[in-house]
Write a protein that binds this DNA or RNA. Structure first.
Lengths: 123, 123
DNA sequence: GTTTTTTACTTGCAATTTGCAAGCATCTTG
DNA sequence: CAAGATGCTTGCAAATTGCAAGTAAAAAAC
C-alpha cells in the first residue's frame, strides 16, 4: 500500500511545521527568549555548560539543558570532547548553526541603532 | 535629593534590560513564536486585525491583541485610520519596525537553505 | 586516596504564558 | 434596523518558565 500520508510538512527534526513560511519554521526552532543567546555564546567560542550559565542574562539551568538538547536535535550544535583533555564533553555549532550568523548580526545591528542603551559585547 | 538611581539600563519602552547585549534586548521585544510573524504580515502590507488572524499559522486572538499592543508600546508599529474610509483603525510599521527587514530576510534565507520543506511566501 | 569542589545536569513546584472557546461591544451592509 | 463582520476581552485548562534544591560523576585539593 502507499506510504502513510502525513499531509503536513515537517522540519528536519521531524516536527510538524505551522506553515511553509521559512520565518515561522525558524521561530519554531529558535523563537524564544533564550535559544539565540545560547547560539550567540557558541559563536563566541563558549562550549561548556558552565560557560553558558556565566553569561550576564543568567539562563536557568533547566532551560539551558533543554535548549542545548533542542540544538542537538535540530542539528545546529553537536557534542565534541572538551578541548582541555578532560573526559567531559563540550558543545560546538555545526555548519547549520554557524549559518545563523547573519541573523544574529542583523539583530545586533538593529538593536544598536534603535535601542541606544545596548552595547555590542566583546566575547 | 538625587534622582532615584535605577542602576539598570532600560530599553525605549522603559523595561529593564537583562543585559546590555543588543541581541538580548531584541529578544526581549520580539523573542517569541508570534511577534515576528505579525511583523512579517505588516511588511506584507497587512494592517487589520482580521488580516493577521487569517495567516496560515493561526495566531490566537488574545495573543494577537497582546502582541499588537507590545509593538505599539515599543514603537515598532503605529495605528492609522484604515485605508478603506471606514472609521476603524489599522496598524502600520514605523521606521523602527521597518528596520527589522534585514532580520526577517536573513531568517528567511537561513530556513530556505537549511529547512528544505519551507517555501518563501508571496504576500 | 579520600575529602572537597566543580561541573552538568534533573526534579519539584509556584508563577507566568499560551491557546482554545466563548462572549461582547462596536461597525458595516443589506 | 436586523444581520453579519470586525476587533477585541474574558475564562480557564494546559504548557512553559524560573527559581531552588538535589544528585552523580569528574577534577582538584589535601
Amino acid at each position: 500500500m502507499a506510504a502513510r500520508k502525513s499531509g503536513q510538512a515537517k522540519n528536519k527534526a521531524g516536527d510538524i511545521l505551522r506553515s511553509p513560511c521559512p520565518v515561522a519554521c525558524l521561530l519554531d526552532i529558535c523563537g524564544d527568549r533564550w535559544t539565540l543567546l545560547v547560539i550567540r555564546d557558541l559563536m563566541f567560542g563558549r562550549s561548556r555548560f558552565k560557560d553558558f550559565t556565566a553569561s550576564p542574562e543568567g539562563i536557568p539551568t533547566n532551560i539551558l539543558s533543554d535548549r542545548l538538547n533542542r540544538l542537538l536535535r535540530h542539528g545546529l550544535a553537536e557534542q565534541v570532547p572538551a578541548e582541555d583533555g578532560s573526559l567531559r564533553m563540550g558543545y560546538r555549532l555545526t555548519e547549520k548553526g554557524r549559518a545563523l550568523r547573519p541573523v544574529l548580526e542583523s539583530m545586533r545591528d538593529w538593536a544598536l541603532k534603535w535601542e541606544p542603551s545596548t552595547k555590542a559585547m566583546m566575547p
